[in-house]
Design a binder for these strands. Structure first.
Lengths: 336, 336
DNA sequence: GTGAAAGCGCTAACAT
DNA sequence: ATGTTAGCGCTTTCAC
């Protein structure tokens, strides 16, 4: 009980006007100190809380950000979400989450739930299906409805909006070089995510590095993780491999396991690097050297750009920020 | 551009009243079929979308649920969140997320952001700090402001509200029995989380089952995951072990690795079961048999209860639902 | 069949 | 220093 006391109620109780109460509670100097005090006290005693919906309607600002992510069970996205939440809260914004579950349909619906005034801007990462179909018409609504939008990590090239990405090409390039500096000459690239853009970029970075080093590229593409044990074992038995670069974290962990089961010592015989700095990387045996994408940082940066855009602090031209990857050295690679 | 066309705008364009437009768009039979068609067409062509904030103010319903979780980087909570999102979306609700980061202060602030009318109800899991201090006064606001609240997993006993929990004791008990039915006689319990309540309950369930089966309990408590390899190897070398029950997912994965590295075949020589059905469990080699807490189910159930409560479908008395755990059989346990 | 008017709860320009 | 009024965008009762 006791719920939902309004300005009107307070005004009636004190026999003053609604606007007096409103001004008093907002510390408007137009109202006398005593009246302000009296009104505040009453409001306090009744546990008055201003109705946020009414304020939003009036101010045309919801102080809310809409976030659309393809999946929350991928640790990368939880981490980005973490960064988003921290930064949004810090700047006084709430976040509404929608999951596209990698489906274009759900992604489009999510955008629809956001263009009705319930958020001040959108942060999203493109669904896998959308990346395949390349049908980006639903993203145009952002512009049509004047709703600022920031895309992170998986972005749509043909959509003009602020973007935050990771330099996957560069990350893979550097990781390959890193392995080469450890005296590895036979570096294999395992790619279970070749169907999404980041997987592609990583592969390209690897291939380029291999070429620049005048080595032989060796790419193992798989559709499912469960193929890795068999396929990799086959390769290990047929050719010399002294380093593995994996396009994501699981495949790196699996690679370590497979190598060990085949009698190789990691890192003495084979060095392993994976993409994404997750929990598994930290806890595997041996712990995994990774290319960290700084997921949390991506989240924070996306919020910064979005809010700066909303607050008109950015040039008209879309901003594209590339978050640098870096290598976190652990025990799956030889020490230099 | 083109943004924010309102009923008023449409009305002016067609030279009809606002209410006519509103009724037409809502298919009110008061309005003639032709007018309805004409208005709808115009609305469509202008890309009219009703303002959700205004609708909420009018209807006093936001169709939004506030969710407060202690951490998003714990996979359990991401999974619950996943379940919450799926079910909420299914029932036409949006979700706003706040993270307490295990802090009472942030938890309390999060509740404050929800009692201002921006959500129709709250779903939360109690922050670790709050569990320690046992200061639950901030939870009373839910009742004071008539805001339905559902607590899941970590609940506050002295707060009267709907609750959804997991039976960890029972889960461990059944897992132990399960291993015994596989002819295991020397079942070890690995507990890296003995300091938190769920870790305790699981250990108690294991011990009780072992007693009921007249077996010898063998508990390995560790402070950090990195102790598991060494400690478990020592045990494996000194005594017979034919089954392992691990209090969480990661320790189970490590246990499999350690067993394999010591020359044991999993599951032929040693069966392994872990708590929590996460991604690692699915992808490890061999895949891990787990006690699933049905995190997703917990999330869905919480939403169901909350919305049923909001819609007045529940008895006045708070509801407490215990979600049963169950065993998901994979390849780390012998086939029956 | 259509429109006028009130009101959701709040803010703020404009009286007094 | 306080009150009146209008209005955010929408729904809905009540008149015409």
């Amino acid at each position: 009980m006791g719920s939902k006391i309004t300005l009107k109620d307070l005004a009636r109780i004190l026999n003053v006007s609604i606007s007096t109460v409103s001004k008093a509670l907002n510390d408007n100097p137009e109202i006398s100190i005593e009246t302000r005090a009296k009104i505040k006290e009453l409001a306090e005693s009744y546990g008055y809380v201003p109705n946020n919906i009414a304020q939003s309607l009036k101010s045309k600002s919801t102080k809310t950000i809409g976030v659309i992510i393809p999946a929350i069970l991928l640790e990368f996205f939880s981490k980005v979400l973490y960064g988003i939440e921290i930064e949004a809260t810090k700047r006084g914004y709430k976040i509404i989450i929608c999951l596209s579950n990698e489906l274009q349909q759900k992604e489009s619906e999510s955008i629809d739930t956001f263009i009705n005034g319930s958020v001040d801007g959108i942060i999203l990462s493109v669904a896998e299906e959308t990346q395949k179909t390349k049908n980006h018409t639903h993203f145009l609504k952002s512009e049509k409805y004047n709703l600022p939008m920031v895309m992170f990590d998986r972005v749509a090239k043909d959509i003009s909006c602020d973007k935050v990405t990771v330099d996957d090409f560069e990350g893979a390039y550097e990781a390959t070089q890193f392995l080469h500096e450890l005296d590895s000459k036979n570096i294999i690239f395992i790619n279970p995510i070749s169907n999404i853009s980041v997987g592609e970029s990583r592969e390209e970075g690897y291939v380029k590095a291999i070429e620049d080093l005048s080595l032989e590229p060796l790419v193992l593409k798989v559709e499912h993780y469960n193929q890795i044990e068999k396929e990799l074992t086959k390769i290990l038995n047929n050719q010399k491999v002294d380093a593995i670069l994996a396009a994501d974290e699981y495949s790196a962990i699996l690679a370590i396991n497979v190598a060990r089961l085949n009698g190789y010592n990691v890192p003495d015989d084979i060095s392993v690097i994976g993409f994404t700095n997750g929990l598994m990387a930290e806890h595997s045996i041996p712990s995994l050297t990774v290319v960290s994408q700084h997921a949390e940082n991506i989240g924070r940066t996306s919020v910064e750009i979005l809010l700066d855009r909303i607050q008109g602090k950015l040039p008209e031209q879309p901003v594209h920020k590339v978050v640098k990857t870096n290598i976190i050295e652990r025990n799956s690679t030889k020490k230099r």
